[in-house]
Design a protein around this nucleic acid. Structure first.
Length: 494
RNA sequence: GCUCCGGUGGUGUAGCCCGGCCAAACAUAGGGGCCUCUCGAGCCCCUGCCCCGGGUUCAAAUCCCGGCCGGAGCACCA
């Protein structure tokens, strides 16, 4: 074939691909019509929401906003024993969800609606699609692994109904009997073979006490609840992918249409490794962390306390999208997002960690030093340029004996007894010898909490910033938490 | 072991379904420079990626087959 023919062929088959300006937005949701979308975020409140939960809240919430849909907060709290809900955590979820910018249109507590699920269980037994099973779990595991049914599978419907009634009357002990959904004992995926729909637990539930003792498993509860709420789209982590396979059996038995599902991959935040809710709980109890909002923790409340904005968290997860591949992501990405939001607004202050007091000998006169509160704004803060000032130990040790610029004030030869050089900026260079300082008469004690604890002084004026993120120059962004006798700040990021 | 899902620069994401201006884009990180009286921000430049092997095709990141690697499920947890 000649070159010409080749070219001809190529141009015939190639088509112009429009290069889309990619914005920060989620891909279109399949089969979604504006105003008709119903989605839910369904956590078990056995601890406060973490960064991982935030992904679910944000992704589902964003789609609800885009499609003007209904957003349901559903507490999947149907295990009072192994994954026992924390009574305070219900409110924590609601608080954090609102803080992240999403307001649920409806709140559902599965534990209060268990009687509704019983009706469906009964119907399934009646049509021969569920059976009561007296196998011990190890015993059943053998059947599941080998793919053979256990004897209970062939129970008469009448007998199943009878046992079920007796379960509800409390005639059996924990672990004695369960209700199973009949799927296919030879299904190629062992995870879907005749799974448990109800089990008996006598431990009182933190929210509803002893109102029930026959509890549905997540798969049963979720299957029914999604139907009752008319959920159209389920977006969740890949760990629940097999749920769909299991739950579809129920949908098929009842002739229901299963919602559209999408799953995102596992997120591993490098800084935290595998920190599960239960592990955090243990470390709080052991005293390693001070509480669920310890700024070192990846809970939503800790991030908020620390000065990470909801907007940054939202953008962070929107940018991750719905990829099914598992990701190793660093907090640095979140911080970069946050810095962009916080930087233009944050006022600047001098914070001197590990202060060293120096005296400027032969200072000609004290004077007012005006420094912008923020380089992009006009407002100024005023410091008194006086004889006794603090500088940080780190700067002192590094630059002792050198010509150093006390930012916006004057140049000195740095020492405990420093020599005044000039008011003008003579040969001082950014990144080299311009340092921050504090007049002794203007300094308030300040403690900064982060990975470390820093003690030092901060300039007067930060008292006004309680609740806001400021930047301590040459130190980092911090959120001012308290201003009483001394200032308490939480380290946000650099 | 069985099942399912992934694998694009250091890290994320887009492109894959519908093969072709993709010798691959954006963000972040790292390196260099400019600017700024902060180690912050901004501006400019640079480094660096289609897991491997076959196949189909004029043409493969994209389709097919086979490996390898990673993750998840196989609970009377969610």
């Amino acid at each position: 074939m000649s070159e010409e023919q080749k070219k001809e062929l190529i141009s015939r088959y190639s088509f112009e691909k429009r290069i889309l300006e990619r914005e920060l937005e989620l891909p279109a949701l399949p089969n979604a019509k504006k105003g008709e979308v119903v989605m839910r975020f369904a956590p078990n409140p056995n601890g406060p929401p973490t960064l991982g939960s935030a992904r679910g809240i944000v992704i589902n919430g964003e789609y609800c906003k885009i499609y003007d849909g209904k957003y349901i907060m559903r507490f999947d709290d149907t295990d009072p024993k192994t994954k026992r809900p924390m009574i305070e955590a219900y409110d924590w979820y609601l608080e954090d969800m609102e803080w992240l910018g999403y307001n649920p249109d409806e709140i559902i507590y599965a534990s209060k609606r268990i009687h509704l699920y019983y009706d469906y269980a009964r119907k399934l037994i009646e049509i021969g699609k569920a059976y009561t099973c007296f196998c011990k779990k190890e015993e059943f595991k053998k059947f599941r692994d080998s793919g053979f049914p256990c004897s209970h599978r062939e129970n008469e419907i009448e007998r199943n109904l009878e046992t079920w009634e007796r379960m509800l009357e409390g005639r059996y002990g924990e672990g004695e009997v369960v209700l199973r959904i009949k799927t296919d004992m030879s299904h190629r995926d062992p995870a879907v073979r005749d799974w448990v729909a109800f089990r008996i637990i006598y431990t009182p539930h933190p929210l509803v006490g002893d109102a029930y003792f026959v509890y549905p498993t997540l798969d049963f509860e979720s299957a029914i609840e999604d139907r009752l709420c008319k959920t159209t789209h389920i977006l969740r982590g890949k760990d629940l992918r097999d749920s769909e396979l299991r739950q579809r059996y129920i949908y098929n038995y009842f002739g229901w249409e299963y919602p559209i599902t999408m799953h995102w991959g596992r997120v591993n935040v490098v800084e935290f490794g595998k920190l599960s809710t239960s592990l955090i709980k243990r470390e709080i109890e052991s005293g390693k962390y001070e509480g669920w909002d310890d700024p070192r923790l990846p809970t939503v409340r800790a991030l908020r306390r620390r000065g990470i904005t909801a907007e940054a968290i939202r953008k962070f997860f929107i940018s991750l999208g719905l990829s099914e591949s598992e990701v190793n992501i660093s907090m640095k990405n979140l911080f970069a997002e946050n810095r962009k939001i916080v930087d233009p607004e944050a006022n600047r202050y001098f914070f001197v960690a590990n202060p060293v007091e120096i005296e400027i000998e032969n200072l000609p006169n004290e004077n007012r030093v005006e420094i912008p509160l923020n380089p992009k704004k006009n407002e100024k803060r005023v410091l008194n340029g006086e004889k006794f000032v603090y500088v940080s130990l780190e700067d002192f040790e590094k630059l002792r004996g050198e010509n150093v610029r006390l930012k916006d004030f004057c140049n000195v030869i740095l020492d405990r007894k420093a020599k005044f050089v000039s008011y003008e900026l003579l040969g001082a260079k950014k990144g080299k010898n311009i340092i921050h300082w504090l007049p002794k008469s203007f300094a308030i004690k300040c403690r900064v909490l982060g990975e470390n604890v820093w003690e030092g002084f901060v300039e007067k004026g930060v008292e006004r910033e309680v609740g806001r993120v400021v930047q301590f120059e040459r130190f980092g962004f911090c959120k001012i938490e308290k201003a009483e006798k001394e200032i308490l700040a939480i380290y946000t990021h650099d």
